[in-house]
Simulated assay, not measured.
Amino acid sequence: MLRRFSVLLTCVFLISACGSSDSPETQVRRAIDAMEKAAEARDVSDLMEFVADDFRDQYGQDRDQLRQYLMGYFIANQSIHLLTRIDELELPGPDEALVRMTIGMVGREADAANAWNLAADVQDFEITLRREDDDWKVMYAKRGSR
């Protein structure tokens, strides 16, 4: 009787473990959604939580330079709205993701005299994310041409 109970308990544990974890693709998509929300909230700290310590962009800029850029962008744009589309998502390994995405950025310039002064831009990006513990963090970003 005890043996059947242990087998049953083991089966329940295995089934619940399989059902509770999201696929890496779902986790990456969730991380990108959270990054979008942090950017729209103009929250540099929350956004930087998704950036790896060894981050680099195509120009060799590091994490601190990205933080400075974001602070300036958020000051210049008092209202930010993003439209994101994941064009391609590859998982070359269990802890790495390559994402090609298009981001439409609409921000209001910090010009109080002209409330209709909108800045709009559509950019393609290629980003590489790495899983660190249970979090997906951007380790490389490249802005594409449009």
Rank of each mutant, 00 (worst) to 15 (best):
R3C: 00
R3A: 00
F5P: 00
F5K: 00
S6V: 13
V7L: 01
L8K: 02
L9M: 09
L9P: 02
C11I: 15
V12N: 04
F13P: 00
A17F: 14
C18L: 13
G19R: 07
G19Q: 11
S21Y: 14
D22L: 12
D22R: 10
D22T: 11
S23H: 04
S23L: 08
S23R: 02
S23I: 02
P24T: 04
E25L: 02
E25N: 04
Q27E: 12
Q27C: 08
R30K: 11
R30S: 10
A31K: 01
I32K: 00
I32C: 00
D33F: 11
M35H: 03
K37I: 11
A38N: 09
A39Q: 10
A41Q: 11
A41N: 10
A41S: 13
A41R: 11
R42T: 01
D43A: 09
V44Y: 07
L47T: 03
M48Q: 05
M48K: 11
E49Q: 10
D54I: 03
D57Q: 05
Q58S: 14
Y59C: 06
Y59Q: 15
G60A: 06
Q61I: 04
D64C: 02
Q65A: 09
Q65L: 03
R67S: 13
Q68H: 15
Y69V: 08
Y69K: 09
L70V: 11
I75W: 05
I75M: 09
N77W: 06
Q78F: 04
Q78T: 13
Q78G: 11
S79Y: 10
I80F: 06
H81S: 08
L82P: 00
L82Q: 06
L83W: 06
L83C: 03
T84S: 06
R85K: 15
I86A: 00
I86R: 00
D87I: 04
D87L: 06
L89E: 01
L89M: 05
E90W: 07
G93S: 15
P94M: 08
P94L: 06
A97V: 04
V99G: 01
R100H: 14
R100C: 10
M105E: 14
M105H: 14
